[in-house]
Design a binder for these strands. Sequence first.
DNA 1: AGGTACGCCTCTT
DNA 2: GGCGTACCT
Length: 538
Amino acid sequence: MGIPNLLRFLKPFIEPVHIKKYAGKRVGIDAYSWLHKGAYSCSMELCMDPKSGSARRYISYFMHHINLLRHYKVVPVVVFDGGSMPCKAATDKERHRKRELSLALAKEKLEQGNTTAAIDLFRKAVHITPSMAYQLIQTLRSEDVEFVVAPYEADSQLAYLTTLDPDQGGIAAVVTEDSDLIAYCCPAIIFKMDRFGNGEEFIMERTLKTDKASLSFRCFDKKLFTGMCIFAGCDFLPSVSGIGTKRAYSLISKYKNINRVISTLKLDKRYSVPDDYADSLWKTLAVFNHARVYDVKSKSLKHLKPLDEQYLNYLDGDLDILGPPLSPSIARGIAEGHLNPVTLEAFDQYSRTISPIEFIHTSAFKVANQCGSQEMTQKSYIAIFSSRESKENVIVNDISNGGQKCQKGILALGTFILQKHSPPVDCNEVEPKNIPENNPFKKRKFTTDQGQEMVKNELLIDLHDEKSILSCSSLSQPSSHPKKFMELLSIGQAEYERNSVVTETPVSFCSSLTEESVKSMPNGVSSKRQKKPEEVQY
DNA sequence: AGGTACGCCTCTT
DNA sequence: GGCGTACCT
């Protein structure tokens, strides 16, 4: 919802603009705005049969706008929303309830044959799902459009990108419909861009420096500006009843200090200020300043602005209100569009019907091939894959035999089996840390399908934890350097990711294997692999 | 005057 | 999500 009435309030500072002004520049796109508008054209299809062709009209809508930008030599960088913030859970739940209600009514109307009424209700029932975003991501990939999925809010990710240089992945402006970007003090925002490229531009510096229509932000710094927005009410914190943009503005310009505004409000009998309002407001300010964002360069989570002592105090050590931290591998999986940011599961785990074990062999081959005759021999291979039993903490029994029991993200290295813990489904859950101690190896008995008892070395590591991987790698491969291991790991991961998107089907992937290369596979490849890969189906 | 609650619209042809 | 509007303080 953004900040109610903020755009109207700041109208004097908003000027018409055409997107061609940003020719040659990189411009961030708030994917949600266009997804939402695009979904309007196919709301019924999306509700009833999301897999149908006509349910993909929202993608055409989106791509039209992308092509428009490209036509004007603007480089689009699409930013998607990631997981929802804990503090918005209540709002989210309420919206969900309303949508469910509309959906039920819509289906009812449809059965009664009242299509017009049904469509109207379907429009209220549509919401943008991670799956829809993923469909779009696949198109963006094929069209070579840069994108990133924010760990949490797209707004903060976009605000972060505006702070970077273009050659570091930075953007010059943001195209969105959401006034929250103003609260983040985003330097340049284009609102209401239409299909011809006309929009309304908000420039932060211009707003802070010029007086218009008896409004002046000259005495405002960015902190006060964000503070004003929060006082007026935002998604994270509802405003004190009776306070909107105008009163928030006059209070801030009068006292120029956030705590003084709060004390004044508390003394004023007209308003009822909750006891914890000051606390909540400072926390909200901390969210606008230090939200978790993804840094493409380091491939890990960062804070929008580096955390300082002051804000750490406001947060009272409770960093989780910024959204729970994510490990680099998970954050990257989300950012690059492979993991559903809400469930943390791989998007395409159901689209693949080749068995996990087949997939391990095929990608292992590729990895082994890329390693050549380096110190990691053909016998060592890495594969990361998804299987359907992703929520169980099952350990794969035998890499060459089992497969069916594999869980998401198992890493197989040489003769050892490395297990990744399944990511917590509940985001509030603490990530299991199973960092191996001095001797992470243990013998484990297991029974093969043929009833034989076998003992295998088994190593449990936490793939969420890079340190854990490093310590294991030096133990399991004394001859290889941890860095080499990490390199291999990233090749394996990249291999998996590359092949888990539609650009290469398992069919074409498998058919690239030669008989000879398959023979050299560590555990011997099941003969299945060589029989007509064309039969493999999705 | 300013805030709030409510209903309407966003697309495509 | 935004916007306009009628109604309330």
